[in-house]
């Protein structure tokens, strides 16, 4: 096995980083249509959301809302929906950890053990996601159902009591979240692992590092950008999700997304907006701490 065959074409990729870029108005022309779309339908709405969160909650869609800088919406939202908010973050953290425990070995196996089946395995990671998110989540209702194999087996092993079930429990919700967001962890992680220079691992083993030490000191640090990106892509959507909670959970597993959706559906825009802003703020805060700790800044 020659190590050189695994190496990426170093010259070309290095050259594009400091490639000469064109100056002038061309860049703006190319950027502006899509950029405007993002400003008008992403940036402006975000500002509107913050504004809406401070409206007088006694207004309604028909009568209109008055901007009264009603900060009490926030305290009300925290008091009324604090448990759901905490539960969302908690479920999202657990699901993210479960994704790492399953996704790291998978990404590692594809990058280092895939051989000529590498592309096939990558397709296999993406393939389940060609079936609709909701249809797949619904199929977990069947897999975890009371009369099906998984529950029967666990009851037989006495992991579950004779009346125990999995569906409509926090376990089911977290299983669904883990399942749904796993590829978002695997793909960036694989991209990072794939780039690890195999010669570094040879060097480590030449210097008497055991395979485990080589992994800990070489592979793991080099895969950190992918791991950080992957965990964020898992944690963020999981924290805002309400599909898994609704389809696989019960009223005590409701997450903040369920409440936001229901508040909007009920027409309580100010409270719904403030809850949305709180969710976003909590995520930004947690992500900032995490990224600082993980020590990677090259995410964009």
């Amino acid at each position: 096995m020659s190590a050189a065959s695994h190496l990426p074409g170093g010259g070309a990729s290095a050259a594009s980083d400091d490639a000469p870029r064109k100056r002038g108005l061309g860049g703006y022309l190319l950027l502006s249509p899509g950029g405007l779309w993002l400003v008008v339908f992403f940036v402006v709405p975000t500002v509107t959301l913050v504004a809406t969160s401070l409206y007088d909650p006694s207004g309604s869609l028909q009568l209109g809302y008055a901007m009264t800088w009603h900060w009490q919406n926030y305290t009300d939202a925290v008091v009324d929906y604090g448990p759901q908010l905490l539960r969302s973050l908690q479920y999202a953290v657990i699901a993210t950890i479960a994704c790492v425990l399953m996704g790291y070995p998978l990404a590692y196996a594809i990058a280092f053990k895939g051989g000529r089946f590498k592309n096939l395995m990558l397709v296999a990671v993406i393939a389940p996601f060609f079936t609709s998110f909701l249809v797949r989540t619904l199929s977990w209702q069947y897999i975890l159902g009371d009369n099906e194999a998984v529950v029967s087996l666990l009851r037989w092993l006495h992991v579950l009591g004779p009346e125990g079930h999995l569906l409509a429990t926090p376990f089911a919700v977290i299983t669904g979240l883990t399942y749904n967001f796993l590829p978002f962890l695997v793909l960036p992680l694989y991209a990072s692992l794939e780039k690890v220079d195999r010669r570094l691992l040879e060097a480590a083993s030449d210097l008497y590092a055991s395979p485990f030490t080589a992994f800990r000191k070489v592979t793991l640090p080099l895969s950190m950008p992918g791991l950080v990106a992957g965990t964020l892509l898992t944690f963020i959507p999981a924290a805002g999700d309400y599909i898994n909670s609704e389809l696989l959970g019960n009223p005590t597993t409701r997450m903040v997304g369920n409440e936001i959706q229901d508040l909007f559906a009920a027409g309580d825009y100010p409270t719904a907006s403030s809850l949305s802003v709180i969710l976003m703020a909590a995520i930004v805060l947690l992500v900032a701490i995490y990224v600082r700790r993980a020590g990677t800044e090259e995410l964009v």
């Binding site: 950029g35 993002l38 400003v39 339908f41 992403f42 940036v43 402006v44 709405p45 975000t46 509107t48 959301l49 504004a51 809406t52 869609l61 964020l232 892509l233 963020i236 959507p237 924290a239 805002g240 999700d241 309400y242 903040v256 997304g257 936001i260 959706q261 909007f264 825009y269 719904a272 907006s273 949305s276 802003v277 969710l279 976003m280 995520i283 992500v287 995410l299 964009v300």
Partner: peptide, 25 residues
């Protein structure tokens, strides 16, 4: 770069409610 990256880092429910807030306002 930030404006391009942010939508991918925003939970869907926040993005959806922002747009709804815009349309309603």
């Amino acid at each position: 770069n930030i404006v391009i990256f942010l939508p991918m880092a925003t939970p869907e429910v926040v993005m959806g409610s922002s747009l709804l807030a815009l349309f309603v306002n």
